[in-house]
């Protein structure tokens, strides 16, 4: 059967693969024939995610991406053990809800390091000879928060806007190398980050407004994973530098 998003034989590096959208993307990639390399901190959850993958040739690495200065050696090791990558998905991320008075530099830095610095640093390290194959596709999981502001979300929104801006710049810079760079921008999706949102502000007027505007309801991880595998595949060969909203209608209403 003809499959426009066939990923047979492709090797995809996925951060944040132990949970939520990263985990869902890893599973879907494996179903489409890819070999996946999972990265996150929690080894138990990584193993659980591994046990849900189809096919073989997959691997996982426990690594803390907030150690940005150690990423270079880490990627070198992964590439030497697994070979060159055909795709990279950055799903690792932390939510942050902090009034300005509690947003000290350390808190701001933590969010930027995991959500943004590690994204650029991994790409930088993957662009070395033998670390990537021509045709590589990179997808960052950004958020509609990159385009919308909200009180207490300064660090989070900034980290996602930074990702969007970098996607546009890197797409152009890496085009000669036949590498595409895109982001997906989900609205509220049912994962642990969503659960945190409910715990902190679930009952607020703000949360009710959001749900009214996101009129298709809460998204599921698979809704985002479907777009990611499309962007990873050759079917999206003419798409680069884009930030694609997956928002159940939210930004249009």
């Amino acid at each position: 059967m003809y499959n426009i998003v066939d990923l047979t034989g492709r090797q995809i590096l996925i951060t944040g693969a132990s949970s939520g959208m990263g985990r869902e993307t890893a599973i879907l990639c494996s179903k489409l024939g890819a070999k996946v390399v999972l990265v996150a901190r929690n080894e138990v959850r990584l193993q659980e995610a591994m046990s849900n993958l189809e096919g073989d040739g997959h691997a996982y690495y426990s690594f803390d991406l907030s150690k940005v200065d150690e990423i270079e050696d880490f990627i070198k090791m992964v590439v030497s053990e697994r070979g060159a990558m055909d795709g990279f998905v950055h799903s690792a991320g932390v939510g942050s809800t902090r009034p300005l008075k509690l947003l000290k530099p350390a808190a701001l830095r933590e969010v930027m390091e995991i959500n943004y610095f590690s994204f650029v640093e991994i790409i930088r390290c993957l662009m070395k000879k033998n670390a990537y194959n021509e045709g590589m596709s990179i997808v960052g999981i950004s958020s509609i928060s990159s385009k919308q502001g909200n009180q207490t979300k300064t660090a989070y929104c900034a980290s996602k806007s930074a990702m969007d801006a970098s996607v546009r710049c890197l797409a152009k810079e890496l085009a000669d190398k036949k590498v595409r760079v895109n982001a997906v921008n989900p609205a509220l999706i049912k994962t642990e980050i969503y659960q945190q949102f409910l715990n902190n502000s679930g009952e607020s007027e703000d949360a009710k407004n959001i749900m009214q505007r996101q009129y298709l309801g809460i998204g599921e991880p698979i809704d985002v994973a479907n777009m990611i595998v499309y962007l990873l595949s050759d079917a999206a060969k003419f798409i680069t530098g884009s930030c694609v909203d997956i928002d159940g209608g939210r930004l249009s209403s």
Binding site: T97, R98, T152, N200, E205, D206
Partner: peptide
Amino acid sequence: DSMTKLSLIVMFDDEFGKKITSE
């Protein structure tokens, strides 16, 4: 108000490593 309640949640997390909820 909701902003102060949120500050309380963040303070518990920062200072006591405790996750308290709006409940």
